[in-house]
Nucleic acid binder design. Structure first.
Lengths: 233, 233
DNA sequence: TAGTGGTCTAGACCACTGA
DNA sequence: CAGTGGTCTAGACCACTAA
């Protein structure tokens, strides 16, 4: 569609998306080169490049040098999962939030810690355990290993009043994170703390964060099986 | 950090990330303008722009015209969860995929179906149950309610060879989806089919999809507790 | 070797918004 | 009004890879 003004990279993105949806370009097939599209749309190649790069990031096309740009066969779509702070999440649900610190200990990393957190065995780490309550019902048990090297005042922080997450996100932004969700059985301690049957399933989330190559924290979050992780596309 | 060759936008991204992590630029504070950074790094403004746009998309900074670029205070971010086709997911792991159709039935929607799928009670729906195997171990039990109104040939499709997902994504793209993940206990049937202990926890995913306002399908996917939902930011 | 995408440049104009 | 980011341009060089 020839444009009144010049086309923006967004318009080009939409037009290409449209054509893929209309099967003008077949799934698995090649689409014209950046050069050709630039001529067709009457824009610079850089503009087409930006549109196609975003479509590639969104998973709609795959690009390879020399080969060209291919419509992805089975568009694997992604949904965004929020990573709220527990306190905010509970407050947003209208319930009352309460926090209880169970443990705050510095210790030398053993082999398992080192593996989980990605630091050298023997290095000092900060071990924090706490419980988050929603309206006085246990909502989440949190076990967190923190790499104290990320900030100079880590070992001064007490975590008495607020959970480590609030402090951590303020002190140590992360550039990379890895999430895992699974179902499991609680340990005896977890069952007791969450006030659930030791045979009842629990919903477990694990998160590891880095700033570039430096590990920040490894977190295990255990919820009663009534917990739901929901998201929308 | 003067560079041997010219800096790439990736190097600039990392350098800026580093500085934010090192508190050289405070959370909530402004960082230098694109112009200034371009001069400092000895690159064109466009290169700095690209680096900063990616950091903004990643949630590390916020940008506003005239105001400048600000380090985000509480980097509460979202992670993308992929929605792979089971067959591909298994194949990608290097295992052999096998599919078994358990049930394919048309029936009138009862009240519960109607609620789950979002159609009128009494309307015809297609009920499909199947099992997905990874290297002959049960990987996922799938129970799916399909709204036949979405495509003219729905009721002709047998699902003998391939799972309903492969067929559905080809026939009926969705514009909206809702996901829920939780931990639970399997029903007697699910435990038998997945070949697990009825007391063992299972990981359950539920998905509902729509094309605009029209419901397409409601799916329940049950995995043994060894399953992990993983994602990266 | 030739054609593709990946990236950078130097410059330009625009849109937005705080002073 | 002035300074910021948002975007486009025309051109260039490079890296990769199929032929």
């Amino acid at each position: 569609m020839t444009s009144p003004s010049r086309m923006t990279f967004r318009a080009i993105k939409d037009e290409i998306t449209q054509r893929i949806g209309d099967r003008m370009w077949e799934p698995g097939g090649l689409i014209p080169s950046e050069q050709a599209l630039a001529v067709e749309f009457g824009v610079a190649r850089g503009t087409v490049n930006r549109a196609l790069q975003e479509l590639a990031r969104a998973g709609l096309v795959e690009r390879k040098r020399r080969t060209g740009t291919r419509v992805v066969l089975h568009p694997v779509r992604g949904a965004r999962i929020g990573i709220p702070l527990v306190a905010q999440e509970i407050a947003a649900s209208g319930a009352t939030y309460r926090y209880r610190l169970l443990l705050r200990a510095e210790r030398a990393a053993n082999a398992r810690d080192a593996d989980r957190l990605g630091i050298e065995p023997g290095a000092t780490l900060l071990n924090v355990r706490c419980l988050h309550y929603s309206d006085d019902r246990p909502y989440q048990f949190e076990h967190r290993l923190i790499n104290p090297a990320i900030a100079s005042d880590t070992l001064q922080e007490s975590f008495e009043k607020a959970g480590p997450n609030e402090w951590l996100v303020a002190v140590a932004p992360f550039s990379r994170a890895e999430f895992t969700y699974l179902a499991g059985l609680p340990s005896a301690e977890e069952a007791r703390l969450l006030e659930i049957d030791p045979k009842a399933p629990v919903f477990i989330g694990e998160r590891r964060t880095w700033l570039l190559a430096r590990p920040i924290a490894a977190i295990r979050m255990v919820h009663p099986h009534t917990h739901r992780l929901m998201t929308t596309l």
